[in-house]
Simulated assay, not measured.
Amino acid sequence: MRKHRDDFTIDMFTGWTPPRVSVGFEPDAFPGTRLASRISRAIARALKDCGKDRPTVAAQMSERLGYKVSKDTLEAYASEAKTQNNITVERFIALIHVTGKTELLGFLAEGFDMAVIPKRYENVIELALIEDHARMIETRKRTLQAEIRRTK
């Protein structure tokens, strides 16, 4: 008997992939061992992908920080060749705010074997940790009960 295939319904096992939970660029997006080069490439990527031109980003960063950040300064941060122009933490934070590219936060965390997640997932993770702990307690409880029965 030939089975009819429904092309309009997503197969729940092959037609869906879970969304990425953490923020960040794709794994190994900026290979290499020189951290300054990797940071420059991450900044360049964020600037390219944010949908704003660099003069606009510089002006919005300037407004947010309360002092001037020039387009040339942004260009230097995004250039691997400009080794004397490293971005400060406050400017990096302003860059993330202005570009909306939270992937930069994930880029930082990745170096510490950590992940950055949206706050809405925090309770889900805490619940999973509590459930893991409850399983450990239940396992220990059963082990102790078995030992007590053996010693009677």
Results as ranks from 00 to 15, higher is better:
Ser70Lys: 03
Ser79Tyr: 06
Ser62Glu: 01
Ile39Lys: 09
Ile87Gly: 10
Leu35Trp: 13
Ala58Ser: 11
Arg54Ser: 13
Arg38Gly: 14
Pro118Trp: 08
Leu104Gly: 00
Glu75Ile: 09
Ile130Asp: 11
Asn123His: 05
Ser79Pro: 06
Tyr67Ala: 06
Cys50Ile: 06
Ala78Ile: 06
Tyr77Ala: 01
Thr102Ser: 09
Ser62Leu: 00
Arg54Thr: 13
Lys101Glu: 14
Arg38Asp: 11
Thr83Asp: 06
Arg120Thr: 05
Ala46Arg: 12
Glu90Pro: 02
Phe112Tyr: 13
Glu80Trp: 11
Leu127Ala: 11
Arg54Tyr: 10
Ala78Ser: 15
Leu127Asn: 08
Ala58Trp: 13
Thr73Ile: 10
Ala81Asp: 09
Ile130Val: 15
Ala94Cys: 01
Ile39Glu: 03
Gly100Ile: 02
Arg135Ile: 07
Ile117Trp: 00
Arg54Gly: 04
Arg38Phe: 14
Leu74Pro: 05
Ala76Gly: 04
Arg120Asp: 06
Thr73Lys: 12
Val116Arg: 04
Gly106Ala: 06
Thr102Gln: 13
Ala134Phe: 15
Arg64Ala: 14
His97Ile: 05
Arg45Gly: 01
Lys71Gln: 15
Arg38Ser: 13
Arg45Thr: 15
Leu104Gln: 02
Ala36Trp: 02
Ile87Thr: 09
Glu80Phe: 14
Val116Ser: 05
Ala76Gln: 10
Arg135Asn: 11
Gln60Asp: 15
Leu35His: 14
Leu105Tyr: 01
Lys48Glu: 14
Lys52Ser: 08
Thr99Ile: 08
Val124Arg: 08
Phe107Leu: 12
Thr56Trp: 07
Pro118Gly: 07
Ile93Cys: 03
Thr56Cys: 04
Glu75Leu: 09
Leu95Ser: 02
Cys50Val: 06
Glu131Leu: 12
Ile93Met: 05
Ile39Arg: 12
Ile125Phe: 03
Arg38Asn: 15
Thr88Gly: 07
Lys52Asp: 06
Arg38His: 14
His133Met: 11
Thr88Lys: 10
Tyr77Leu: 01
Glu103Leu: 03
Glu80Gly: 15
Arg45Tyr: 11
Met114Val: 04
Thr88Ile: 02
Arg41Ile: 02
His133Leu: 12
Ser70Thr: 15
Ala44Lys: 15
